[in-house]
């Protein structure tokens, strides 16, 4: 039953992504690419790119995108509900407790231990994205198969982001244009 699968997958993404921003990315990759094969790695990378350039959290965007691809609009709605359900329950509960007791130090301490792991997992997912970009659908990761154009674009982007501090959306658009005009 595809709706149930979509629902349960995105339920797990919603329940286990701590820290916002890219924190959901490794979970989405694990569920959508590795476990279920709903998207190829290259489609997944496109999805992350699209998410960056449109409003809305990555997890919600992914739920809509994957849901539609796998089971149309009803699939998108199912996946989106799955994705926000854990937040709805947990956050309401915590907000209720907070408004009553006004203390949450224990919770934040637990979070301090999760943060380094989240960084590590984003790094790991980022490596998959780069491998997919540099080698495309090539299976063997040899230097001979690498797309050097994209490596050069990557280096330029890193420089622009870290040294010149240009807006990430502009950097991505620039990367697209560079690869479009220099075949």
């Amino acid at each position: 039953m595809i709706y149930l699968q979509l629902f349960l997958s995105f339920l797990q993404i919603g329940a286990f992504s701590f820290g916002g921003g890219y924190a959901a990315m490794p979970l989405i990759q694990s569920q959508v690419v590795t476990l279920h094969g709903w998207l190829s790695m290259s489609e997944f990378t496109d999805l992350i790119t699209i998410s960056q350039m449109t409003p809305g959290p990555i997890a919600i965007n992914s739920a809509t995108f994957v849901g539609i691809k796998i089971a149309g609009i009803p699939g998108a709605i199912t996946a989106t509900i799955g994705c926000i359900l854990p937040s709805c329950i947990l956050v309401t509960l915590i907000a209720k407790l907070y408004l009553k007791y006004r203390s949450m130090t224990m919770f934040q301490r637990v979070l301090n231990s999760l943060r380094p792991a989240v960084v590590a997992m984003i790094a790991s997912a980022g490596i998959s994205v780069l491998v997919s970009a540099f080698w495309g659908s090539e299976v063997s990761l040899k230097l001979a198969n690498i797309n050097w154009n994209l490596v050069i674009i990557f280096v330029i982007c890193i420089f622009l982001l870290l040294k010149v501090k240009i807006n990430p959306i502009l950097v991505m658009v620039l990367a697209g244009i560079l690869n479009g005009i220099f075949p």
Binding site: T49, Q52, V129, A133, G136, L150, C157, V171
Partner: peptide, 20 residues
């Protein structure tokens, strides 16, 4: 598709800089 390919390298760079 060529532009999306380039943007994959771009988003890779964005993720790398965030991780850094």
């Amino acid at each position: 598709s060529r532009m999306l390919e380039g943007m994959q390298a771009g988003v890779g760079a964005v993720i790398a800089s965030v991780v850094y």
